[in-house]
């Protein structure tokens, strides 16, 4: 990223984007100085809740990145995997009374079993097929997982409580007058730990190096004796574990329900922003989307009214589609995403 900054030319689309960003930030700071204390506090609250919501998106995006990097497969079923993991977890806990510290490893085991099954019954037969065929296969997988989850555990909303802290953070509320959910802070902490752990794993371990090798060149990885099957099982298991984390966080927030599968759609703009191949990118993309949509929801109507005299009510519920517009704009400027790997092409 730094290296690419030094080579940046202002005339390029990226340069224009950065200039706009700088102008925007300057305006924002100026505006922040001009408003009164109460509004400023409200702005901080909006920003923080945006950041924390962004972390939740990032958790889902992370699973996508892991699988895409190592197999070039865009795993459409990542969102459903979060739901699937959540269903099993609530099933173990609510229906069988298994305590959380046992139910979580049990669910991890289920996700590992799913990884084995996916390799055995899907991926193995589709080696060397077009990416679009593999993508279609993951769509099928999404339906299968959703169906199995429904048959086993039923389709009503299930409460999930694994003992994560709830309610507003007293520290921030008393000290600074900010209202922030403890659960969201916990999600942020978990995401941070997850990212650091995954980065260390892929950078410094033998298996991690093999994962990156497979991501670069399947054939070459095969030729040096890396077994693709083993690698795929490992990757899908890790993605399953990440899906479980996402499932726990979203489930604790709003109950485990089938709309959980749809958060995968919100992860898509996150990936376009952050780059499909970068773990830090998934996190940063999530934060940008999270904050961006909250800001847009609260402030964009007023701004548009002041600037162009547009009816502010046109911009309500912008939260639902803002992310996609942002992603579209991003595709025009920097299609590989903020941290996506540049495609190295030798001629």
């Amino acid at each position: 990223m730094m290296a690419s900054l030094s080579r940046l030319r202002l005339a390029s689309p990226e340069g224009v984007g950065l200039l706009l960003l700088a102008a925007y930030a300057a305006y924002g700071l100026f505006w922040l100085g001009s408003i009164d204390e109460r509004d400023r506090l409200f702005f901080y609250e909006v920003t923080l809740s945006g950041l924390l919501a962004g972390v939740m998106y990032s958790l889902v995006a992370l699973g996508f990145v892991l699988i895409f990097k190592s197999s070039g497969i865009f795993n459409f079923s990542q969102g459903v995997m979060a739901l699937f993991a959540g269903l099993f977890l609530t099933g173990f806990m609510n229906d069988f009374g298994v305590p959380a510290f046992l139910a979580i490893p049990l669910t991890v085991a289920v996700m590992v079993a799913v990884a084995f099954a996916v390799e055995r019954f899907v991926l193995r037969h589709l080696v060397n097929q077009e990416p679009i065929i593999l993508f279609m296969a993951t769509i099928g997988l999404a339906f299968v997982l959703e169906g199995v989850g429904d048959i086993l555990w039923g389709s009503d909303v299930k409460p999930l409580d694994v003992g994560l802290p709830r309610g507003a953070s007293d520290f921030l509320l008393d000290g600074y007058g900010l209202y922030v959910e403890k659960l969201e802070i916990a999600a942020a902490a978990v995401a941070a730990v997850l990212v650091v752990a995954l980065s260390l794993f892929s950078q410094y371990t033998r298996i991690g190096r093999a994962l990156r090798a497979v991501a670069d060149d399947h054939q070459a990885a095969l030729s040096v004796g890396i077994s693709l099957r083993t690698i795929w099982v490992i990757v899908w298991s890790i993605a399953g574990a990440v899906a479980l984390v996402a499932g726990i966080m979203w489930g604790s927030k709003s109950g485990v329900q089938f709309s959980l599968a749809l958060i995968a759609l919100k992860a898509l703009p996150v990936l376009i922003l952050g780059g499909f191949t970068s773990i830090p990118g998934a996190i940063l993309g999530g934060l940008i989307i999270g904050v961006g949509e909250k800001w847009a929801e609260i402030y964009l109507g007023e701004v548009m009214n002041a600037l162009f005299g547009l009816n502010a009510s046109w911009f309500t519920a912008i939260e639902n589609w803002f992310a996609y517009v942002l992603a579209l704009a991003f595709l025009l400027v920097r299609p590989q995403g903020l941290f996506g790997e540049k495609i190295i092409e030798r001629v």
Partner: peptide, 22 residues
């Protein structure tokens, strides 16, 4: 393999270490 097939995004040293995978 024909055409080298190095792991493009890995460093040269990581490429060599990947060869020791087995």
């Amino acid at each position: 393999m024909e055409g080298r097939h190095c792991f493009a995004h890995l460093t040269v040293e990581e490429n060599l270490l990947a060869g020791a995978y087995t």
